[in-house]
Design a protein around this nucleic acid. Sequence first.
DNA 1: CTCTTTCGCTACGAGTCGTAGCGTAACTCT
DNA 2: AGAGTTACGCTACGACTCGTAGCGAAAGAG
Lengths: 225, 225
Amino acid sequence: MVGRMQCSPTGPRKGRARLTGRTGRPRSAAADAAILDATRAALVELGWGKLTMGDVAARAKVAKTTLYRRWAGKNELVLDAVAVLFDELELPDRGSLKDDIEGVVLQFAALLARPETKTALMAVVAESTTDDALRARIREAVVERQKRLVVQGRQRAQQRGELPPDGGGPEAAAAAARSVDLIFDVIAGAVVHRALVSGEPVDAAWAARFTTLLLAGLRGLESRD
Amino acid sequence: MVGRMQCSPTGPRKGRARLTGRTGRPRSAAADAAILDATRAALVELGWGKLTMGDVAARAKVAKTTLYRRWAGKNELVLDAVAVLFDELELPDRGSLKDDIEGVVLQFAALLARPETKTALMAVVAESTTDDALRARIREAVVERQKRLVVQGRQRAQQRGELPPDGGGPEAAAAAARSVDLIFDVIAGAVVHRALVSGEPVDAAWAARFTTLLLAGLRGLESRD
DNA sequence: CTCTTTCGCTACGAGTCGTAGCGTAACTCT
DNA sequence: AGAGTTACGCTACGACTCGTAGCGAAAGAG
């Protein structure tokens, strides 16, 4: 729940009410779920451009004002609705770096194949170019969650001896961070570009060829940096 | 001019008027340029989300109806306004595959650093997920134009002997096409992801590390496929 | 039982959309 | 020069969306 508005923390508060939690009628968790479900459904049917707040409210059987009490606007709402889908991403240990990469590529591709993520992800990223707060939310809700998989896969490969271990010292740590960032942009970028811009399917055959390319690059990279 | 509406070809026509060209008052080319300039300016100031047709018309000092006579809507207009920027992309021969790749990466990054392309490209791609006609326009106006650079760079590298030449026969041609597609998605995807999603600068240092990774991958790929 | 917060509902001004209708301007062909 | 055809600027319009305000009722906390 990254994009939720926090009304009461900014409002008046008395003493230990903060410890006990806010007083008064609590927000309906059921309404939350209904709204996010309705948002995803609307994304599938209408796409980003034609999705309206009023439509989502009607689908969720909730007053339009309730939506605005929780989310600042379309951007934040859609981001939250889509972000939870990224919780599904995992990195099962398939025994080799090659299989791990192929697995995460296909998993990410399956997520991007869903119409709600397709249309929503690019749109919120586009909006984030003129909205710094939105960009920060995307970072923690989507980007960091994916990057963790890269870190994890890299550690496993190092334990298996498929990749050289990190050296000691701050400089080696910085180099490792740069390496993770680079690999992350290459994997996520290639998959997104293939799926959404080129419009070609990210199937097992493509994943295999991409992984072969990336693996060769990683092994060739070992000597330097 | 990919997204232009073509009114008269669908209208009535008499005999040889078709050869001479359409009769009647011609469309103002100056208005075209003013509209596209105004669209880019509006993208910079407002971003995709807050850009409106009425605003563009006012900036271009043109009637709003004129806009709708030429473009079906915001999507098509913005795509045309941004597409011309991709004409700048070239692939000067820098003597080696490594330098050629770094050059095209930095060139593409410079294009993406401009606020009008930043906010517009992702947005139209997002809309294209629910609009097949728009996707086709993006293909020919943007994607194919970039892919040509990959084909060109690959041919040069083969002539230099940096990459093995294509074999004969239809199967080898198909493999070459797949290879170009893969490389294109990796390059364009990584740059876009780095610049717009990760939000980190695509500078010379990053371009160098990315190119090193990709080159190692390409050389490692030579043996198979 | 009181206090606090949320909820549903209605209503609203502001802004945008895309189109229609009109008179005028510009260019082509006879 | 005149007739025919098309583009243009302008105004106006209904439909829709936005985001907010105000109200009474509902739901939990102390």
